[in-house]
Design a protein around this nucleic acid. Sequence first.
DNA 1: GAGTGGTCTAGACCACCCA
DNA 2: GGGTGGTCTAGACCACTCA
Lengths: 262, 262
Amino acid sequence: MSNRSRAAAESRDPSAVPSPAAPATAPLASRPLYLQARDLLLRRIVDGTWKPGGYLPSEPQLALDLGVSIGTIRKAMEDLVGQGLLERQHGRGTQVVPHSSDRSRFRFLRFVHGDGRPFRPVAHVLSAGTARADAQDRGALGLGPGAKVLVLLRTRSEDGVPMIYERIALPAEPFAALRAEPGAEMLEEIYVLYQARCGQTVARARDTIATDRAAPAIAQALGCPPGTPLLLVSRVAVSLAGAPIEYRQSWTAALHYRSDLD
Amino acid sequence: MSNRSRAAAESRDPSAVPSPAAPATAPLASRPLYLQARDLLLRRIVDGTWKPGGYLPSEPQLALDLGVSIGTIRKAMEDLVGQGLLERQHGRGTQVVPHSSDRSRFRFLRFVHGDGRPFRPVAHVLSAGTARADAQDRGALGLGPGAKVLVLLRTRSEDGVPMIYERIALPAEPFAALRAEPGAEMLEEIYVLYQARCGQTVARARDTIATDRAAPAIAQALGCPPGTPLLLVSRVAVSLAGAPIEYRQSWTAALHYRSDLD
DNA sequence: GAGTGGTCTAGACCACCCA
DNA sequence: GGGTGGTCTAGACCACTCA
């Protein structure tokens, strides 16, 4: 019986494939059902069957569809909830989490003032244009020589005072739509745009923090002397599909960078 | 029946109290069993009933002891596993995770070289002594005026080259045993000592990253000119009981600080 | 009141570790 | 071979949301 339903679930989705993270040692047939279910759900989130902000079918419905028990569906969902991709609401349903300032998927690291006050910035785009990716861009984004990137230069200000100078490099290909995007001018939460306009959902990011000295352009934007020691936060953001889609450098003179309590 | 076993579980542990994180809206009687079980397990870990490195009773045994089903025990454990407090080993049992370099609870943030190579340091204690806590120490550790702290000054070197200068302030009270600890001289993973010698287990930590300039003592230790721009990582570590127990400042000239791929 | 997710149980079978 | 955790199921009842 257990084997029968397992085979049924497999045959119901002939395109089923082990996720990249799955150990190669687990043969397809013996992969736990809840992992297969999780990957199926993930695939449907990635391919847009269920849009960000939309609701999944109910648990009993999904259990019927996949031919597994509700408990197995729940275990698959728990995993995706833990990743911040789904949000369950008692009595309402299970929602694909959209990026938004409220429920940001990046709860671990953020800029704060020196005294610990939260930093509440407004963005202002200085320039946006396509350019040949430099060596750093190519390394961070995994691009080949001659690849093009969309480069956004912007400041992030609080009370009209620019506190962060930011350079964002995006692979030109999937992000072409962003170039003429009118709303992008002042939008803080740019990941919403990646998702809505370019179909790219940021899944994870790695930050590397270092010191740097203010180049002339940065010094001018931040209103500090050239050569001033700055904090430089470099971020590589990765899509749900596992490809690097954003290389962002943020320079700041006065702000600190902080992890949540674990 | 559900109410009966719930009441039974409550009466079995009269000292049960909602965790600080529990919403005040949940009356004691209706607190989910698995949360009550989780807190009971946590309490036994904190009070040393099960020592770091030791094994818990088996699931059926715990289920019997607490008067709940195995599924409820499993759900309670999953929570603690997620916090990195427990580690389950198929066929062997469930272990209280000890701090160690291998399975560090701080997987989010670490020092790396500028090229991304991992930093593999050796510690060297420069001095260890009790002092009156300064304002920063008191703020970070929540101490009153006149409180004493144990201050460790140390360097962390790779291939004999000092890369990090570190000041660690600990409340004098629970950490008195550490002062004369012989093994502390060169121990990188000092959290193991906190646990083994002082009974203090670090549960979470918050890092704040800023720039600073090298004070003379730091410049000398790191072999750089005074005034050199440095990266300063300030950490407040919190015990299982929720009290701040370590205030650590780490200065480095060359290293970067990096979050895992989230 | 219908439908959703949340909690809890009981029991089956499997996979792993170790004596 | 005995004990451990891992997976999976089926069903009960509760709590919440919304019409």
